[in-house]
């Protein structure tokens, strides 16, 4: 078991290295911070721009390969992911933002999974009844709405609620009100800030889980082993809830691999829409600032999240399915 995970881990590290390197080379050959520098007032001379960028390790006159080697050496020897054109250090900046993002995603991931699976089971049990049709129709609807537009609509709804109630119940932007005293008030403030983005991500995310869980459970309802359980003297519902349900979790556990990156990507948009200073909004800003190092760092972060998702999925599958347990 451990060896298996270790093997997977090594493969993923290698993959992350490749994707990150490819990302860096792409970024370094397309992003040109020098152009932005030249728009400053007073307009710096080209020499000044080169000097200023060289000081930050971003010399635009080196060819992409030389810069890649420098950059990689920095990471491997000093774990230094470089600097932004404005002088900020990537390591520090990243450290601040990664927790903001993680906090946002964690609640959403758990809610998405729990609600999606629960609704899937519920709708499968009421197959072809009105509640099943309504829940499943919603899930299909969620599939054809682009995530950022859905977030925006949730934001609009929250604003409408605030307007209707005449007071600010939800905060639709930002992560906290500055200058709050620690204690109960701060907690309420935090919840009020978290509520809308978390609800938005969850609302969009659970659909695919609901559909998948419903389908897998229905596939297993008439399985031979359910028939065996009924032949023992269990009622149909008992047999399904004790036997079919557990088996139907197996493919859902496998699909965690793709949820975590998906929610992460959704988080990018959520941060942008709700103005959260997380990794996602940083990355998009970094790109518009022609910031090679920041863009690459966020790309690496995305790959790591994917790998974590894949390993977690392996782990979850082992947990629910004894057949894959390694002897």
């Amino acid at each position: 078991m451990f060896r298996y995970l270790a093997k997977r881990g090594i493969t993923y590290v290698f993959m992350i290295f490749l994707t990150t390197s490819a990302g860096y080379l792409l970024a370094v050959s397309t992003l040109k911070p020098a152009l932005l520098e030249q728009e400053r007032i007073p307009r710096p001379t080209p020499e000044q721009v080169v000097n200023s960028l060289s000081l930050k390790g971003l010399n635009p006159e080196l060819n992409p390969w030389e810069r890649y080697v420098d950059w990689l050496t920095g990471i491997v020897t000093r774990w230094d992911w470089g600097r932004s054109p404005n002088g900020a250090f990537i390591n520090a900046e990243f450290g601040d933002r990664v927790w903001i993002s993680t906090r946002l995603f964690l609640a959403s991931i758990i809610l998405t999974l729990v609600i999606g699976v629960a609704l899937g089971v519920y709708s499968a049990a009421r197959q072809y009844k009105f509640s099943d049709r309504a829940i499943t129709a919603y899930s299909y609807l969620a599939y054809i709405v682009p995530a950022p537009i859905a977030y925006f609509l949730v934001q609009l709804a929250a604003i409408n609620i605030n307007d209707t109630l005449g007071k600010r119940v939800f905060f639709v932007t930002g992560i906290s009100t500055p200058g709050m005293d620690p204690g109960w008030a701060q907690f309420v403030d935090m919840v009020a800030h978290y509520a809308v983005p978390t609800i938005a991500i969850t609302l969009v995310g659970w659909g695919s889980y609901q559909i998948a869980q419903r389908q897998y459970l229905l596939d297993n309802v008439n399985a031979d082993f359910v028939r065996t359980a009924r032949a023992k003297g269990l009622t149909r519902n008992q047999a399904i809830s004790r036997h079919a349900l557990r088996v139907s979790f197996i493919p859902v556990a496998q699909s965690i691999a793709f949820t975590i990156p998906a929610i992460f990507a959704g988080g990018f948009f959520a941060e942008k829409i709700f103005a959260w200073p997380g990794v996602g909004s940083w990355s998009i800003d970094a790109i518009s600032q022609q910031d090679v190092n920041a863009a690459t760092a966020t790309l690496a972060y995305g790959s790591v999240i994917f790998a974590i998702g894949a390993i977690l999925a392996d782990f979850a599958t082992t947990l629910v399915d004894p057949r894959v347990r390694v002897q």
Partner: peptide, 28 residues
Amino acid sequence: SDKAMCKYRGKELAMVFQDPLSSLTPVY
């Protein structure tokens, strides 16, 4: 009813099925 039948199934009436590979729940 299904529930009433459960008193007999497995107690008075028992059954062995054709395909042993799929007739046992794989996760228990």
